[in-house]
């Protein structure tokens, strides 16, 4: 036990500070990807709910692909292929240099792409939950498209989507562990490095598990709180 304590000391002799820094990276990647996912999800929901023929199929294709392909494969495709794709696009604009995504960019793009698919479904459901009569009433009041959108649709969609987005957040947070395979020193990578140099894997993977547990539990509390605040104007039976 004492040995474990010294392994986890703060500072140069122990690994606690490195592990906590790893947790910081995990949180950073999760927050950016989750935000990116919501932006993609809003677009995806718009595509899926579009009345233009064949356009919704594009949205279906996106969500089906993400939900049917392992996240690890998606991450590898973006890690190995992202740079090539970016170079091809850059060439069209006359840039001939070499482009390579770093671990953070790869992670955020991959996780944003993945969580975007789940957010698409959540937001689509939330839009459908807004009663049609409200939109008709807003039209009857003479509200323009934009006013209808930001006064009637968005506030309610945000409220309906909250519980689902909470689940997407938990998913994204846990998915960040996969980014360790491309070398970002988040919790998992840090635990791997530490156990490699000390030959004490148990301590560090337990520490990693505890850190994830803390992050998921705390963020769950935050989401519950936000839900209460968002629903303060709603009367419940």
């Amino acid at each position: 036990m004492l040995e474990w304590m010294s392994l986890l000391a703060w500072g140069d002799s122990g690994w606690s500070d490195e592990m906590v820094r790893g947790a910081g990276w995990t949180l950073l990647v999760a927050v950016i990807s989750f935000a990116l996912g919501i932006v993609i999800g809003a677009g995806g929901a718009a595509v899926k709910l579009s009345r233009v023929p064949f356009v919704p199929l594009l949205g279906d294709l996106y969500t089906t692909l993400v939900r049917g392909i392992p996240d690890l494969i998606t991450i590898y495709i973006i890690f190995f292929g992202g740079g090539q794709a970016a170079m091809a696009v850059a060439k069209l604009f006359g840039y001939d240099g070499y482009i390579e995504f770093d671990a953070l960019t790869t992670g955020v793009l991959a996780l944003g792409f993945i969580s975007g698919a789940y957010s698409t479904e959540v937001i689509r459901g939330a839009v459908l939950a807004v009663p049609k009569g409200q939109i008709e009433a807003a039209k009857a009041c003479g509200m323009s498209r934009w006013t209808r959108f930001h006064r009637i649709l968005v506030p309610q969609v945000a409220r309906y989507a909250l519980p689902g987005l909470g689940n997407v957040w938990q998913l994204t947070l846990k998915d960040t562990s996969l980014i360790s395979v491309v070398g970002l020193t988040e919790i998992m990578r840090q635990a791997f490095v530490a156990s490699g140099s000390t030959k004490q894997p148990m301590v560090f993977f337990v520490t990693a598990a505890v850190l994830y547990l803390a992050l998921t539990s705390l963020s769950n509390k935050v989401f519950n709180r936000v839900e209460i605040v968002a629903n303060r104007g709603v009367r419940r039976a």
């Binding site: 562990s177 998992m188 791997f192 598990a209």
Partner: peptide, 9 residues
Amino acid sequence: STPLLVQIF
């Protein structure tokens, strides 16, 4: 509450 990867490792 913990990632599957942690459990595997």
